[in-house]
């Protein structure tokens, strides 16, 4: 197992290099470069082409594409992620600044949706066709089909603006930094994000559970005279868990990348929100790094999924 994990991590490196190249290439192909977006259009008209050239030269933008790529990649491997074009802040600082907020929101949502989703899905499967199941099915359908921003704006309108129970956005107010001051801020974004994810996990665990309950070993378990709870949980749910773990695993990148839309709607100061700002401001170095980190998160998540699957399903062998 350990050997497998180490080998997988080594396989990640060439994949990351390839993807970083694609990211770099993609931005190279977009019109304009760092200098043209750096300079205010009003100023640009007063700058001579020679001055522009000099500026390009000083940023190393006149070097051939591959050279620039290799320098950029080399810097990353040395831990130098570059600077944001807006304000020249080191990107590493931005990450350290924004990551806690994203982690906080995503972790709450992930934890909540996993636990509640699995419980509701199992109940729904065990009471198939009952009013409870029908209600949860409707809820699940709404959860997976209503767009996040619409749902986010609706709860904001109801709970923040009309009822005034909770703050509409942000993470904390300056000067109010105890957990009790901060908790109300996370309720709405976490609720929206969790409800969306809960619906997915619930639908998935319901169908997975229904499938498991029709398998022959359930009858075997029953023929041994085991109590129903043991049949449902130890034999049914345990087997139904594998596909659900995969689904949850695919959500893990959210921990690093953040949910772009929810963070934007609630002005949550996380990576996702930063990403939008960076794209709008043509902040290429930052966009590239966030994209690269998201890719890294996805690759790591798939590794974690593989390991988890092997842990819960003895038929899967990692070699």
């Amino acid at each position: 197992m350990l050997v497998y994990v180490i080998r997988r991590i080594f396989v990640l490196i060439p994949m990351l290099v390839v993807i970083s190249f694609l990211v770099y290439l993609g931005l190279e192909l977009t019109p304009g470069d760092a200098v043209s977006s750096l300079i205010n259009p009003e100023v640009a008209s007063r700058i001579t082409p020679e001055q522009l050239q000099a500026l390009r030269e000083s940023y190393g933008l006149n070097d051939p594409f591959l050279v620039r790529y290799v320098i950029w990649l080399g810097n990353i491997f040395q831990g130098n992620f570059g600077h944001s074009l807006a304000g020249g802040v080191p990107i590493a600082t931005i990450f350290l600044d924004r990551l806690p907020a994203t982690l906080e929101l995503s972790f709450v949502a992930l934890l909540f949706s996993t636990i509640i989703g699995c419980i509701l899905g199992t109940i729904s499967a065990l009471r198939r066709g009952s009013p409870t199941d029908n209600f949860l099915t409707v809820f699940g359908m709404l959860g997976v089909s209503v767009p996040e921003f619409l749902f986010g704006l609706s709860v904001m309108l109801i709970f923040a603006l009309n009822l005034g129970w909770l703050p509409a956005g942000g993470r904390l107010m300056p000067g109010y930094e105890t957990i009790w001051d901060r908790a109300p801020h996370i309720v709405l974004p976490a609720m929206v994000l969790s409800l969306m994810m809960t619906a997915g996990v619930m639908r998935y665990s319901r169908s997975s559970m229904l499938d498991a309950l029709t398998r022959d070993f359930i009858i075997t378990a029953r023929s041994k005279g085991l109590p129903e709870w043991r049949i449902n949980l130890l034999h049914g749910f345990r087997v139904a868990l594998t596909p659900v773990v995969v689904l949850i695993g695919f959500r893990l990148p959210l921990l690093i990348g953040g949910s772009v839309i929810i963070e934007q709607v609630f002005q949550w100061p996380g990576i996702g929100n930063e990403f939008i700002t960076a794209v709008r401001g043509s902040d290429y170095p930052l966009v590239m790094m966030i994209a690269l980190f998201s890719v890294f998160a996805v690759l790591m998540a798939s590794l974690i999924i593989d390991v988890l699957t092997a842990l819960i399903d003895p038929r899967v062998r990692l070699n």
Binding site: R215, D216, F217, T220, S223, H235, R238, V239, D313
Partner: peptide, 18 residues
């Protein structure tokens, strides 16, 4: 299971894989 026990047709699927 204790007084009346049963064995099934397909041992491939009658045992829980996990």
């Amino acid at each position: 299971g204790s007084e009346i026990a049963m064995i099934f047709q397909d041992p491939m699927t009658a045992l829980n894989p996990v």
